[in-house]
Design a binder for these strands. Structure first.
Lengths: 234, 234
DNA sequence: GGGTAAAGTCTACACCGTAGACAGGCGGTG
DNA sequence: CACCGCCTGTCTACGGTGTAGACTTTACCC
């Protein structure tokens, strides 16, 4: 147990590495939020000069990309699963729990790709896409159709995650209080429905809600698939 | 044409107002991106000292909220439409075009609510929610069910918008070039599907894709509705 | 041991959000 | 008219940010 801790001046010996840097960056984001991830702050956590970080990431944006990648790498996809619907369901739930475990990273997941053309993104963030395409093609979709299915699926999934995180507050008791407090602030005349939904808003089963949506979506997509197979056969 | 333009020192006379400030802020974001919206930059655009902005927004975050609200206020919902599915479809397409018109604002739309409890958000951003709830209740959903439907719908919608914006590049010619360039960069062994999809990726009809997804989702939701009505009747 | 490339540090710059004290002009009231 | 008070806008200043560029130190190979 002599490893270099955050601020102990005793042992600044271990050589840094990209993985060490990104790991600490993720810890920092998880515990204090995205804004806390500054070069100076991170350098301090690592017991190093802030400028040393630039050996492992070109700039702060690249660091953020690295953190996204680190999280997304934890998502395991099994492209050879014969039951593609079950597999998609499983992936969805995995990504959801991943998002709940790293809520502060979600804005990155959702925002960074908007400013990076597909081909230039970190490979780790593209891997799930590739693997899901494989899964769908193995299930009988034409590649182009697989892309459409992927888009519908991933769109829905990210949408759900954003939705759920919007309503998520750490302490459920404070949640209720805050919620009522907030709702009470709304003009009664203009927001009757919302105000009335206070109780319904506060007990939210994200996993169930995700699963219902998936059922609707996947059965719809399956219908589409069988239609296409039929047409191809004719 | 003697109105005060951006940098003319001639006529710094017009009194500022929250609307004027937010409008210029939106212009700045649209033309130069979110990062360009700094207090100093915006002050300069308005020919005023940066500090004057604090009379119209508590801080930069509040300014960002104001910009979100300004955009979302352009979304018109008709809660009394008897055809709820058609109305939801229309809203979806409206929001999509709004997003394409202000792509730089989308990260705000998607990100700001994550750090603001529902009750404390700008009223303008809550109005669509309230109105869609009305629409659904009028269509026969129980309030609590209306909330579920809303979540599935809005989740899907935001997901689609994020998806589409990720693949959107301004100049379609450069798009193709960039895309191929980017794809070429991917290791062939690990990303065969993705590399093969180059052409399919570059012609993307967002509106059609959105519409297909909506068809699937809405028919699924409708089935749910009739099931519930039946059960209630029994 | 000597040389070399990498890892880490230092200094400096331009820019950021914003607290707090202040100035100017406008309105309403006498 | 003079006066007062409030609202708008300005000024100065502080502590924080990302990062360029030159430097020093370290680790390793021959």
């Amino acid at each position: 147990m002599t490893s270099a801790k955050s601020s102990g001046p005793g042992a600044p010996k271990v050589r840094l590495s990209r993985d060490i840097v990104l790991e600490k960056a993720l810890q920092l984001v998880d515990s204090e939020g995205l804004d806390a991830l500054t070069m100076r702050r991170l350098g301090q956590q690592l017991g190093r000069d802030p400028m040393s970080l630039y050996r492992y990431a070109e700039n702060r944006a690249a660091l953020l990309d690295g953190v996204s990648e680190l999280v997304l790498n934890q998502l395991k996809v099994h492209p050879e699963d014969p039951d593609w619907k079950a597999q998609l369901r499983e992936i969805a739930h995995d990504l959801r729990t991943l998002a709940l475990r790293h809520p502060n990273v979600v804005p990155l997941l959702v925002t960074r790709p908007l400013s990076t053309p597909l081909g230039l993104r970190p490979l780790g963030t593209l891997r799930p896409l590739e693997q899901i395409l494989s899964l769908l093609v193995a299930a009988g979709f034409e590649p182009a159709d697989a892309l459409h299915v992927y888009r519908a699926y991933y769109g829905f999934l990210y949408g759900h995650i954003l939705n759920e995180l919007q309503e998520y507050v750490v302490d459920p008791e404070e949640n209720e209080a805050l919620l009522r407090l907030g709702l009470h602030r709304l003009p009664a005349r203009e927001f009757p429905r919302l105000r009335a939904l206070g109780p319904a808003l506060s007990d939210y089963d994200g996993a169930a809600e995700l699963d219902q949506g998936l059922t609707i979506l996947l059965s719809g997509l399956e219908a589409q698939l069988s239609r296409q197979v039929a047409r191809r056969g004719a």
